[in-house]
Design a protein around this nucleic acid. Structure first.
Length: 131
RNA sequence: ACUACAAGCCGGGUUGUCGCUUCCUGUUUAUUCAGGGGGAGGAAAGUCCGGACAGCACAGGGCGGUGUACCGGUGAAGAGCCGGCCAUGCGGCAGCAAUGCCCUAUGAGAGAAAGUGCCACAGAAAAUAACUGCCCCGGCUUCAUUGACGGGGUAAGGGUGAAAACGCGGGGUAAGAGCCCACGGCCGUUGAUGGUAACAUCAACAGCGGGUAAACCUUGCAUGCUGAAAUGCCACAUAUAGUACCAUUGAGGGCGGCCCGCCCGAGACUGCCUUAGGGCAGGCAUGGUACAGGGUAGGCAGCUUGAGUCUUCGGGGCAACCCGUUGAACAGAUAAAUGACAGCUACUUUGCGCAAGCAGAGAACAGAAUCCGGCUUACAGGCUUGUAGUUAUU
RNA sequence: UGGCCUGUAGCUCAAUGGUAAGAGCCGUUGCCUUAUACGCAACAGGUUAACAGUUCGAAUCUGUUCGGGCCAA
């Protein structure tokens, strides 16, 4: 349990219902190439979904690439966020989209994900997040 | 050696760290952890064809619809592939020409002699050709077979056109005409020979019908419909619910559209009339149509081993391909895994440098979703083979 | 995953296989007006999405490709 740069099945958003709910009621924040949709939940887990629109990336290869980059960046940086959440009584659902039209570089994605995580930490601490 | 074209093949390698998915073994209260194995393509794409598989439907026949179309082979099958036949086009040769032969490329290549339609413009005429011209006859007229008119014959000539009524030469005739003849072309029937066949060659007889079927159509052949969001099971949830209309004994339903014909078809209460059969009214039920809603959208199976793929050797076949045999692997995700970073190296390229080398950049098309066989399209760079051209050497 | 429809001028649409495609709006120029608008006149603007094929001839028929839209538990 020491080094946990993992992102298994349990740590990803997989339910169609949950995702529909998230998009219908969640908060949105845009940070340059990416956009995060997030919401607090009662199930005490930190779940991530990644996506890219069909319109901006018509080729399946590019969509796969974007999703992999987002997941990789999240995997390596999400631990501090998990620590903040550890003591609380709620979980967090996050869905990150790529809004750019062109394939982003790995470094740009890491930076943006880092910003998103800092932002989420702040909101958790100040208790601004609505359920 | 280089360039171009065609065909076939490859589509970077390796080490480390951190991850994802699946299977096996062990372990654990636990889909917890450990170890080991597998993990995108030649097109996974387009969905243009064909199947496998699944569900539903199904006595039969005709019509209709859709697809397809030289012949043979191959294969599970096809609008695929291989071989052949025929036609057409470019080029070359022969010939006055028609045409024939050779080379190469292309072909959705049944039927235009079953019928219907269409063929703009131009042209007399675009398909039962007499506008002009040519010729004959008649009366009239004129110096004159000169002129106009009327009746006929005639497809040789006529600015067109994509296409003009078999081609060319000769005979023949009032003028002409396959009317006749020589050479040649095409079509039909019959016969012979070769070929499995398409077809080819020869002979006889009868002919000369313009094009278009990717216009309608005719003929032969094939053909149920729907597709893994199929389909089966489990869990959760709900409303055998509601409203309107129609039908329920010769009504209706089935044969997926129509027709023939055939088959199926008695579930059912109350009241009134009636000898009975039966009739009328209402209700239940069943079925159908429409409206307006409600619930679920989780899991398991299907799900990856299949007419399979590649490979060694032998055999058959011109070839596609087939038969036997040796060996090797062969993904199963489901908001959807197959990745990220770093080093070394192979390749291409830019700059510096005499060179060795140093530094930087690039690396295509593209991502499985039930599975196969084809076709089509995209593709940096490289390899092999063949053909053609250029240069150099022998 | 499986189907269906569609592509013509900058926009909205026409055109039976037959003049190398037409109308309205838009645009440009001129006239009208002191000026603008309206109006009038003229002009420009198209490889009919691309490539092949059938045909004497293709926007139209056929095939392939590309783009756009829609439907389906």
């Amino acid at each position: 349990m020491a080094s946990q740069f993992t992102l298994g099945k349990k740590e990803r958003l997989k339910s169609r219902k949950a995702i529909d709910h998230l998009f219908a009621k969640g908060n949105k924040k845009t940070i340059q190439p990416l956009r995060a949709v997030y919401m607090l939940t009662n199930d005490k887990s930190l779940l991530l979904g990644a996506g890219a629109s069909n319109k901006n990336f018509p080729k399946a290869t590019d969509r796969n690439r974007v999703k992999r980059l987002i997941r990789e960046a999240w995997r390596l940086q999400k631990n501090e966020l998990a620590e903040k959440l550890a003591g609380k009584a709620f979980g967090l659902h996050v869905f990150i989209l790529c809004t750019d039209r062109e394939l982003p570089a790995y470094t740009a994605v890491t930076l943006a994900v880092k910003k998103i995580i800092h932002l989420l930490e702040k909101e958790i601490e100040s208790g601004q997040l609505l359920k």
